[in-house]
Amino acid sequence: MSQLITTPNMADPDGLYASLLAAHRGLTEAESHAMNARLVLVLANHIGDRRVLDQALALAREGTGPAG
């Protein structure tokens, strides 16, 4: 069974961070939210493994408001 990777797993984290910001440049806040939603769906499909995705959802949700 796969586990969510929570240790560094990218060769160039700064580069990815910069690409994320660049992809959103020039968008309104609403457009950025919409793009993020699409991005989540695209990445979720690429990962495909529900177990990993559920762990990712839990990690992302952690500490924000009451448990969902």
Binding site: H33, A34, A37, R38, V40, L41, V42, N45
Partner: peptide, 23 residues
């Protein structure tokens, strides 16, 4: 809010990415 955001994201992607169609 977010329900609408994801719904629209699926419809938007479905036109150009096959994976979104079954959603």
């Amino acid at each position: 809010g977010v329900e609408r955001l994801f719904r629209d994201a699926v419809l938007d992607l479905a036109g150009r990415a096959e994976f979104a169609r079954p959603m």
